[in-house]
Nucleic acid binder design. Structure first.
Length: 211
DNA sequence: CTCCCGATAT
DNA sequence: ATATCAGGAG
């Protein structure tokens, strides 16, 4: 069986195991999702959701981020880590949204990736989940790790991994693939001590039991 | 490539 | 103690 057939079997098995696989970040509009996704870098959805619960009551409009004192914003997001960079990105991003995008979150890859702190991963998450627009596959640390272990790619660069996956999987499954890999990566195919014994697709994985 | 960085699991 | 967590910029 070639890789295209193998990945279809993988998706089938993962869908059965994780029928609830979908984004775990809490948000009610594109701005909230954009902010939550930026905060999620090298953090967990659990921590981000805890932070945004308070954050989204205090910051409702882009102007609220654009006008805030940087130190205060840093303090509000501190527990997500990388808080100085993230605060700087959020404020500059909000200023750009006000100045160049009429205070709205844009809905195209080109426009989103112009924003400070937003590259393809964040843009893909916002486009697909907030706007229903599929332009690519969100390759985060989990998608990267699983794609490599399953040998669906030989690349290291997330953008190249995204390209390989896009050629391997039909567009209608791009979103689901990302969600399934993230769920499975958190629960079973963990970075440390992956649970190959309990993994539903260990027969399809070249790396199974090799850790 | 390095740097950013607190919270959590092992 | 240390690796890792829904990354991106310089």
């Amino acid at each position: 069986m070639d890789d295209k057939e193998r990945v279809q079997e993988i998706i089938k098995l993962l869908s059965k195991e994780h029928p609830d696989a979908k984004i775990a970040l809490q948000y009610i509009d594109p701005l909230e999702l954009l902010v939550a996704t930026i905060l999620s870098a090298q953090s967990t959805d659990k921590i981000v959701n805890k932070v945004t619960k308070k954050l989204f009551k205090k910051y409702v409009k882009v102007e609220d981020y654009a006008n805030i004192d940087l130190k205060e914003l840093e303090n509000d997001i501190k527990s997500t880590g990388f808080y100085r960079n993230k605060a700087k990105y959020l404020k500059k991003m909000a200023q750009m949204l006000v100045n160049d995008f009429n205070s709205n979150v844009p809905n195209s890859m080109d426009e989103l990736t112009k924003l400070p702190g937003v590259a393809r991963k964040t843009a893909n998450v916002v486009l697909s989940n907030a706007f229903g627009i599929i332009e690519g596959i969100a390759v985060d640390t989990h998608v990267k790790r699983l794609a490599q272990r399953l040998k669906l790619t030989t690349k290291k660069d997330p953008n190249k991994i995204e390209k390989d996956l896009m050629e391997l999987v039909p567009k209608r499954q791009w979103q689901n693939l990302s969600d399934l890999f993230i769920f499975h990566g958190r629960r079973v195919c963990k970075a440390r001590n992956p649970n190959c014994k309990e993994c539903c697709m260990n027969k399809l994985c070249p790396s199974a039991f090799s850790f």
